[in-house]
Design a protein around this nucleic acid. Structure first.
Length: 477
RNA sequence: CGGGGUGUAGCGCAGUUCGGUAGCGCACCGCGUUUGGGACGCGGGGGUCGCCGGUUCGAGUCCGGCCGCCCCGACCA
């Protein structure tokens, strides 16, 4: 339950973030360090994210399956970069049923290895390809510094794992799924993202190329909101995934993997939230419309409640909540649901019943500015229209914010200044040394080389050598 | 793993200096009045004071040890 005000977002962003999550009952700290409990309101948001993604996966021919939580330690060791990347953050089971295990079992940090092993059994011929499997599940990475939703020891996600006959096909799949993530982020979450390629230093352990969608949070820091990897034949060779091609010659398959996690809940919170609390995009909000009935006397109540009921029936196609609590005042409810980010509030009192109207109050425009009197005629259509408007305004606002905080540095000093206050889009020669120097000097890393490039050529912002691509430098979560 | 902070009712804290049997606000329960932007009155319930040990007639308070959690730095969806 809400009592007093939240921390001011611009004054103490991390504290604001924590308080919003705890107070809106999205999640809570678990008794184990670095672990969280996703509470029903947070999980409902995640379920809507899952549905939005899952229907896109199905539409592109993918099917769901479930692979085990435990992976033999030796599996991870088969791919050199993979084990090097993940070994510092593995949880390892050494005892089972009171007996010391002959081979330790890793609690999966990701499932490329065990899925690769299974694919080697299942794939014989080019006729078995492509294999397009997705898994919804949880994974464990023993992180040192944790934050609710953004980085916890255990998190929930989906991981897609596909196998293809040709490199071209696999690369297409990698980009198709990156595009799927971008489409979801932009159109359902109203989170503007930059699709791009990761530098070698930032790529997934074991991938040939990694792609990402990067989003700017309300404090201008960057968040990797989803990733898609072209794994080449690295895992095919490690797990001997071979098929007979059209000429009856044995070939290694080409694989991809792509994932999006509960971290995205954090992305939504930090993209749209304001001092009043959460602001949820209508398409994903667990509650799209909250109805607050207003009355003083029993007589008023008996006039208002039937109208509330009738309206609720009319709005069956939306996720509607009627807040009929008697023990708190309407004013309290307004603040409470605003904190919880419900996109649209409908107030109905005796005066409205008399006039045949209701009050719409938009979450994205607080106070008087966001209130309007609306006729009860065609209410469902008006609600649909309003939710659409709010959805669009959230995206526009977030995009404008990102544009206002993205800069084109003219020299290295300029770059150092910019990384203190936003994103820098600069020419980069591609040399890891230049990248490392920036990180050393500014704590900003390369976020991605956007797929959309200005073209032409320039000089590397760090060393001045010729460069053909621009990269985003920014501090990141 | 290093630095900082903290642990007393569900939450936020006071009490620890100087030992004497635990308190405040919010939340919770009951009744009544309230209700168009965070209501109020009256009455009530709830605590092995993080854990273990020591000193003492007596420990939330003093001494020793341990642990948890949060925040800040090196790795990461």
């Amino acid at each position: 339950m809400s009592d007093d005000k939240l921390p001011i977002r611009t004054e103490n962003f991390p504290e604001w973030y924590n308080q919003v999550i705890l107070r809106t009952e999205m999640a809570d700290y678990a008794p184990v360090r670095g672990c969280m409990v996703v509470r029903p309101y947070g999980w409902a948001l995640w379920e809507n994210i899952q549905q939005a993604l899952d229907r896109r996966f199905k539409a592109t021919g993918h099917v769901n399956a479930a692979f085990p939580l435990f992976i033999p330690m030796s599996f991870l060791e088969k791919e050199k970069e993979h084990v090097e990347g993940f070994s510092p953050e593995l949880a390892i089971v050494t005892i089972g049923g009171g007996q010391k295990l002959e081979e330790p079992l890793v609690v999966r940090p990701t499932s490329e290895t065990i899925i690769g092993y299974m694919y080697s059994k299942w794939i014989q011929s080019h006729r078995d390809l492509p294999v397009l499997i997705n898994q919804w599940g949880n994974v464990v990475r023993w992180e040192l510094r944790t934050r609710l939703f953004l980085r916890t020891l255990e998190f929930y996600w989906q991981e897609g794992h596909t196998a293809h006959a040709t490199a071209k096909e696999a690369e297409e799949e990698t980009l198709r799924m990156l595009d799927t993530y971008a489409d979801f982020a932009i159109n359902d979450a109203a989170v503007p993202v930059v699709p791009g390629r990761k530098s070698n230093a930032e790529k997934f352990a074991g991938a040939v190329r990694s792609y990402t969608i990067e989003a700017m949070m309300g404090d201008t820091k960057a968040l990797q909101a989803g990733t898609s990897h072209f794994l080449g034949q690295n895992f095919a060779k490690a797990f001997d995934i071979k098929f007979s091609d059209w000429n009856n010659e044995l070939q290694y398959v080409w694989t991809t993997s792509w994932g999006l996690s509960t971290r995205f809940v954090g992305a939504i919170i930090m993209t749209h939230g304001d001092d009043q609390g959460l602001v949820l995009p209508p398409k994903l909000a667990p509650i799209q419309v909250v109805i607050v009935p207003i009355y003083k006397s029993d007589e008023d109540k008996s006039r208002v409640m039937p109208v509330v009921e009738a309206i609720t029936k009319e709005l069956v196609d939306f996720r509607v909540k009627v807040d009929a609590r008697e023990e708190v005042t309407p004013g309290f409810k307004f603040n409470d649901w605003e904190m919880r980010g419900v996109p649209l509030r409908i107030e109905i009192g005796p005066k409205d019943v008399d006039k045949g109207t209701v009050v719409f109050a938009r979450r994205d425009m607080l106070g008087r500015a966001g209130k309007s009197f609306v006729s009860m005629d065609q209410l469902a259509a008006q609600v649909a229209e309003m939710l659409k408007t709010i959805q669009a305004s959230l995206f526009d606002r977030a995009l404008a914010f990102r544009q206002a905080n993205t800069f084109d540095p003219q020299n290295y000093d300029d770059l150092m200044q910019i990384t203190e206050k936003g994103w820098a889009l600069s020419w980069w020669c591609g040399d890891a040394a230049c990248e490392a120097k920036v990180k050393e000097d500014t704590k900003a890393s390369t976020r991605c080389i956007p797929l959309e490039q200005p073209g032409g050529a320039g000089k590397c912002i760090v060393c001045g050598k010729p460069a053909t691509e621009k990269v985003f430098f920014a501090k990141a979560y």
